[in-house]
Write a protein that binds this DNA or RNA. Structure first.
Lengths: 119, 119
DNA sequence: AAGTGAGGTTTATTACAATAAACTTATCGA
DNA sequence: TCGATAAGTTTATTGTAATAAACCTCACTT
């Protein structure tokens, strides 16, 4: 398995931790119950798997993330561009935008991000 | 199942059809063999499923796509942006680019695409 | 000392993606 | 008319994601 690969359920769960860390495991069980509808055992099962894969950490009932959210996101973004767009960001953008129209502000923001990444 | 959702194996297979349609089913079996390493029965199984889901069509042993590649790509791109970036394209772009640097030409191309989508 | 809650683990269950073996039926050329 | 080939279908197998029931152990409280 690639290091940062998170399945859908895992990703949602990891988001709870990214947004709330450090979080006590009992509190995380409650949070998963309300946010995801998970039972306690489900939470611990998924938690342990993500710990084994080096993505999260659970020490003295305190859960934190080892992998940063931005790294998981980078992985997600690059995976889809490779898989479905032959690695081409322009192709991705074209497909994503489709017939959608951007406002001036949105366009400016995107161009700023691109500018930022241009040497 | 959402209409355009294609699993990994299905997406690769659909690409063969998009790139070669219209294609005779026997030829498609051969193509899947060489490109994906699939047996004949695998090809027909996946083909039938995609036909049932209204994504492909197989009539008189002639296989064509009903859903266009661009539509499947649009779905893929929007799905990942929603799932992992809270629907925010700027967040996606930021994560994708990371520390990567763009050349002048790449930046120009991206800005052109954005310009195009700006009313 | 017995009950209770925190903090887990062990073991299952279910669903379905991925792949294919084995069988069928029809056509067509030798 | 028989054997090959095309064009499929039926039925399995395997792996694993998603979810959870049932159990365990320890510390603390009553």
């Amino acid at each position: 398995m690639e290091p940062y690969k998170l399945f859908d359920a895992e990703y949602k769960f990891a988001c709870l931790i990214w947004d709330n860390e450090p979080i006590n495991s009992t509190d995380l069980v409650k949070l998963s119950q309300t946010k995801l509808g998970w039972k306690k055992s489900t939470t611990y099962t998924v938690l342990r798997k993500l710990c084994e894969r080096g993505i999260l950490k659970n020490e003295q009932a305190m859960v934190t993330a080892i992998i940063k959210k931005t790294d998981a996101q980078k992985y997600e973004s690059q995976t889809v561009v490779e898989k479905a767009f032959n690695g081409s960001l322009p192709q991705f953008l074209t497909a994503f935008l489709g017939e959608k129209k951007l406002s001036e502000e949105e366009a400016e923001e995107l161009k700023r991000i691109i500018e930022e990444a241009t040497r």
